[in-house]
Design a protein around this nucleic acid. Structure first.
Length: 793
RNA sequence: GCGUGGGUGGCGAAAUUGGUAGACGCGUUAGUCUUAGGAACUAAUAGGGUAACCUGUGGAGGUUCAAGUCCUCUCCCACGCACCA
C-alpha cells in the first residue's frame, strides 16, 4: 500500500536530532571495535552543491552506514580544499577578500551537506585555508627543502604575454592561444619550486603491487610514470666529444647506422664551426623550436631532419663510422635527448633512413622482412652472434662501457604558483639571494592581506608591504620573502592525515592517531584524479615516511573510481546545454532519501556514466512510499517462503554492498517488498527489513523506527544477518532442454536424483513433443541448474 | 598508433561467473477506481508469427551437451597517453 510521507518535515526533525545527539561523531578510537576509514575526495567550496557531489558523498554513505551497523567504528570525514583560483577570480570580480568568499561558501555548503543526511564525522573536519592546517603544509615543505626533496629548479611554463602571467595547460586552447586574452602562448623557461617525485618513480610503480586497486587504475599510473628500462651508451664524435644516447635495445647496437640528436641538443650549437652546413642546421633548429608541441609530436607527419655535415660518430660496437643528424622526432626532454638509430628494427628510424638513404643493417634473425621491435637471436653482431636479445643486452653494454639504467616519462612536480590564494612558500632570501626556510617558530607563515591580487605579471605577494616588513623584522635588513604560493595539489596530498588529529598543535598528526586509523580502507573518488592527485599524494606519503613522520608506506588500501552523472539528455551537465539537474530542487520534490537511493540505483557505482532520468527517480519514491505503508501488511502467521525470501534478500544486500553494486541491492529489496505486499509478513520480518534498508534511506527508516516503541536510533542497531539454513530452497525450477534448446521447465527438489528429474520431465507435454523415454540417448543433469536431453534426430 | 574500459529491449540496467537472456526500475498499451493526481490497482510489454514455433546479447568464425559469458579474427564507442628511443 502506498503511503505518502512528508520528507521535508522528517528530514528536518532527524537532522536536528542526529546533530544534537552527536550520533555520527567519532571521538576517540574505540579499540573494542574494528576500524574502518572511508575517505571521499574533499570538495572545493564553490558555494553550490551539484548532483555530482551527491553522487560522490551520499552513495558512499550507504557503505559507511552499513559498516557502522556491522559493528565497526567508522571514520567518514569531510573537509574543504579551499585554496585555488575560483576564489581569487570571484574576489577580483566582486572586489572582496577571497577569505571571506571562501568562508561564506564553506558555511553555506555545510548546511547543504547536512541536508543529504550523510553520517559524516564532523568532529574530524579540516580546511586547507585554515592557518592551523597550512602551518603543517609549510612545515612539511621546510623538511622537504632540508632533505633535498624540494628544490629550486627550472621548468617550462606557458606564458601569456597578454595576461602577463603563467597560465595552466587547461587554459591553453588547441590552437595554442590563451583562452582569456587570445594571445599566442609562449613556452618560457623559468625558475620554479620543484618536488623530486622522480626520485620515487620506482617505488611508486613497484609498491602498486601492495595495494588492492582495480588493475586499470594501477596501469594508468604505470603508464603515466612511464618507466623504460634500457642503457646509456656513449658514442665518440669526430670532434672528440662524446654523445650519450639512451636505448631500450642495446642488443641491436651493431645495427645502429646513424645517430640523431634533438635539435635543442647542446652539442649542436657548441659545434657550430665544425658543422659544414650550419646555416641549414640552424634553420631547422629554429623551425623545430617554433613548432608548437602538438604539431611537432604529430606522428602522422613526415619526418624531417638535417645531416650534420662534417661530423661523424663511431659505433662503439662495430667501430664503423656513422653519420649524425638532427631531427625533431627526438625530444630534448626525454631520455638523453639523443638516440642511436637502428632502422632495421625500429619503424621510425626505418622511415627516416629510407628518406635519407641511410644503410639498414639487420642484426636480429627473423623470418619477416621488416622485423620491427622483434627479439630473437643476434646476427651480424660479431662475437655476440647467436645470443638471445635479452642475454646480449647486458653483455654488449658491458663491452662498450655503457650503463644499464631506466628513464621515466614522469617529471618533477612544479609546485610554485604566481597566485595570491594559496599557501605561501615558507622561504626567505638573504641579501645574497640565498634561500632559507622560515623556521618552525614562525609558522604558520601567514598569507598577508594587504594585497592587490589583480594579475599583472608579478606574483601578488610581491606587492605586500606587510610581508616585506615581516621578513625584515624577523630576519634582518635586506632579507626578502618568497612571493609564490603552492599548487593546491599540495594541500590535498596529506589532508587524510590531518583528519585523524585535526586539533593537534604540535604535530601534523601523531603517530598514535595514525596507528589508530591508517591506512585508508577505501578511497572513493573521480577518475580524473587517477594520475595526478593519487600519484602526488602517494609520493607525499612516501616522502613523509622517509622523514619518519608517518606510519604507512601506502595511504590507500582500496580505491574505487566512480562514474559521472550526465544530464537527462545523456550529455555532460552544463549551463550552456541547459541540462543541469539541481539537487536542491529534487530534494524538495521527492526527498533526500529518494535522491540518494535513485543515484545508487542507476547502475554499479564503479565506472560507467549515467544519465539522470527524471522519470526513474519517481520509481524510487514510489518504492519508499510502499515501504512506508508496509506495516499494513503485517500478519500473524507468515509463510515460510516469506521468511526464506527475507533471508535471501539479506544475503544479497550484504554481498552487493561489499561489491559496490548498490543497484542490485536495491532491486532485491524492491522484490522483497513486492512479495511482502502480496503475501504479508511478520512484524519481526518487518523490523529486520527496516534495518536492512536503513543505510539506503536513513531518514524514512529512522522515522518509522521511532514509531515502534524504540528509543534508540535505527542507525545504532546491528545489521541483519542471514541464517544459512533459510537460504536453501525446498524446490527449484529447472529448465529442461532438448538438444540444447529450451523446451520446458519442471519444479523439483534441488537434491533430486537424475532418474527422478528425468521422470518429471518426460511427462511434460512441451518436452515429450521432442523427447521420449525411447529416443533419449544421453542425459546431462546439473543439480539445481539444468536438464539437457540429447535425442537422435 | 599504444593502453584501459565497454557494446544486451524504446531507456537505466540484470544474469548464480559456462546452465531457463532481459531480474528490478522507467516508459508504453489496455482495463478498474475517483479526493482528476507528478495518483493508485490489475494485466501485458525483446522482435516476428493466429498458433505450433522461429529469430535474438555490435559482426564473422570456433570450442562445448550447453556461450552474453571461453578462444580467433573484425567493426564501433568512451576515457587516458601519444614520434618515449
Amino acid at each position: 500500500m502506498h503511503k505518502k510521507f512528508d520528507s521535508e518535515a522528517i528530514e528536518k526533525r532527524w537532522q536536528t536530532k542526529w546533530q544534537t545527539d552527536g550520533l555520527y561523531a567519532v571521538g576517540q578510537r574505540n579499540k573494542s571495535k574494528e576500524k574502518e576509514y572511508v575517505l571521499v575526495e574533499w570538495p572545493y567550496p564553490s558555494g553550490n552543491l551539484h548532483i555530482g557531489h551527491w553522487y560522490a558523498f551520499a552513495v558512499p554513505d550507504i557503505y559507511v552506514r552499513f559498516k557502522r551497523m556491522l559493528g565497526k567504528q567508522v571514520l567518514y570525514p569531510m573537509g574543504f580544499d579551499a585554496f585555488g583560483l575560483p576564489a581569487e577570480n570571484a574576489a577580483i570580480k566582486r572586489n572582496l577578500n577571497p577569505k571571506d568568499w571562501t568562508n561564506d561558501n564553506i558555511s553555506y555548503m555545510k548546511n547543504q551537506l547536512a541536508s543529504m543526511g550523510n553520517s559524516f564525522s564532523w568532529d574530524k573536519t579540516t580546511n586547507s585555508t585554515d592557518p592551523e592546517y597550512y602551518k603543517w603544509t609549510q612545515s612539511m615543505f621546510t623538511k622537504f627543502f632540508d632533505n633535498d626533496i624540494a628544490y629550486r629548479g627550472k621548468g617550462i611554463v606557458n606564458w601569456c604575454p597578454g595576461c602577463n602571467t603563467v597560465i595552466a595547460n587547461e587554459q591553453v586552447l588547441a590552437d595554442g592561444t590563451c583562452e582569456r586574452s587570445g594571445d599566442v602562448i609562449e613556452k618560457k623557461e623559468m625558475p620554479q619550486w620543484m618536488l623530486r617525485i622522480t626520485k620515487y618513480a620506482d617505488r611508486l610503480i613497484d609498491d602498486l603491487e601492495t595495494v588492492n586497486w582495480p588493475e586499470h587504475i594501477k596501469e594508468a599510473q604505470r603508464q603515466w610514470i612511464g618507466r623504460s628500462k634500457g642503457a646509456k651508451i656513449n658514442f665518440k664524435l669526430s670532434t672528440g666529444e662524446e654523445v650519450t644516447v639512451f636505448t631500450t635495445r642495446p642488443d641491436t647496437l651493431f645495427g645502429a647506422t646513424y645517430l640523431v640528436l634533438a635539435p635543442e641538443h647542446p652539442l649542436v650549437a657548441q659545434n657550430k664551426d665544425q658543422i659544414g652546413n650550419y646555416s641549414e642546421v640552424s634553420t631547422h633548429v629554429s623551425l623545430s623550436r617554433a613548432k608548437d608541441e602538438q604539431d611537432r609530436l604529430d606522428a602522422t607527419k613526415e619526418k624531417t631532419g638535417v645531416k650534420l655535415e662534417g661530423i661523424t660518430a663511431t659505433n662503439p660496437a662495430s667501430g664503423e663510422e656513422i653519420p649524425v643528424y638532427i631531427a625533431d622526432y627526438v625530444l630534448a626532454g626525454y631520455g638523453t635527448g639523443a638516440i642511436m638509430a637502428v632502422p632495421a628494427h625500429d619503424e621510425r628510424d626505418y622511415e627516416f633512413a629510407k628518406k635519407f638513404g641511410i644503410e639498414v643493417k639487420q642484426v636480429i634473425a627473423s623470418t619477416v622482412e621488416l622485423p620491427f621491435s622483434e627479439i630473437g637471436k643476434l646476427i651480424n653482431s660479431g662475437e655476440f652472434n647467436n645470443l638471445d636479445s635479452e642475454e646480449a643486452k647486458e653483455k654488449i653494454v658491458e663491452k662498450v662501457g655503457g650503463k644499464m639504467t631506466s628513464t621515466y616519462r614522469l617529471r618533477d612536480w612544479s609546485i610554485g604558483r604566481q597566485r595570491y590564494w594559496g599557501v605561501p612558500i615558507p622561504i626567505v632570501y638573504d641579501p645574497d639571494g640565498k634561500a632559507h626556510v622560515v623556521p618552525k617558530e614562525h609558522l604558520p607563515w601567514t598569507l598577508p592581506e594587504d594585497v592587490d591580487f589583480k594579475p599583472t605579471g608579478e606574483a601578488p605577494l610581491a606587492k605586500s608591504e606587510a610581508l616585506r616588513q615581516r621578513t625584515e623584522e624577523i630576519f634582518g635588513k635586506g632579507w626578502t620573502p618568497e612571493v609564490e604560493t603552492m599548487d593546491t595539489f599540495v594541500d590535498s596530498s596529506w589532508y587524510f592525515l590531518r583528519y585523524l588529529d585535526n586539533e593537534n598543535g604540535s604535530e601534523l598528526a601523531s603517530k598514535a592517531r595514525q596507528q589508530d586509523w591508517m591506512p585508508i580502507d577505501i578511497y572513493f573518488g573521480g577518475a580524473e584524479h587517477t594520475t595526478m592527485h593519487l600519484l602526488y599524494s602517494r609520493f607525499w606519503q612516501k616522502a613523509l615516511l622517509d622523514l619518519d613522520l608517518v606510519t604507512e608506506n601506502e595511504p590507500y588500501r582500496r580505491r574505487i573510481n566512480r562514474g559521472l552523472i550526465l544530464g537527462p539528455d545523456g550529455n555532460k551537465m552544463s549551463k550552456s546545454k541547459g541540462n543541469v539537474i539541481d539537487p536542491d530542487e529534487q530534494v524538495k520534490l521527492v526527498g533526500a532519501d529518494t535522491v540518494k537511493m535513485y543515484l545508487a540505483f542507476m547502475g554499479p557505482y564503479e565506472g560507467a556514466n549515467y544519465p539522470f532520468d527524471l522519470g526513474g527517480i519517481a520509481g524510487v519514491r514510489r518504492f519508499l512510499e510502499r515501504v512506508n505503508g508496509l506495516a499494513e501488511h503485517i500478519i500473524e502467521d507468515e509463510s515460510p517462503e516469506m521468511l526464506g525470501q527475507l533471508h535471501k534478500t539479506i544475503d544479497k544486500v550484504r554481498s552487493d554492498i561489499e561489491a559496490f553494486k548498490f543497484n542490485t541491492a536495491i532491486s532485491a529489496m524492491m522484490i522483497f517488498v513486492n512479495a511482502a505486499e502480496k503475501s504479508g509478513l511478520s512484524s519481526d520480518s518487518y523490523h529486520t527489513f527496516l534495518k536492512l534498508l536503513a543505510p539506503f534511506a536513513p531518514y524514512l527508516t529512522e522515522e518509522i523506527w521511532s514509531t515502534l516503541q524504540t528509543d534508540t536510533s535505527i542507525h545504532l542497531a546491528s545489521y541483519p544477518e542471514a541464517k544459512a539454513e533459510l537460504l536453501i530452497d525446498d524446490m527449484v525450477t529447472l529448465g529442461v532442454q532438448v538438444n540444447g534448446k529450451l523446451r520446458g521447465s519442471i519444479t523439483v527438489s534441488p537434491e533430486a536424483e537424475e532418474s527422478e528429474v528425468l521422470a518429471a520431465a518426460l511427462v511434460e507435454e512441451s518436452v515429450t513433443r521432442y523427447a521420449t523415454k525411447e529416443n533419449v540417448t544421453k542425459v546431462i543433469y546439473v543439480k539445481g541448474r539444468i536438464l539437457n536431453l540429447i535425442v537422435q534426430s
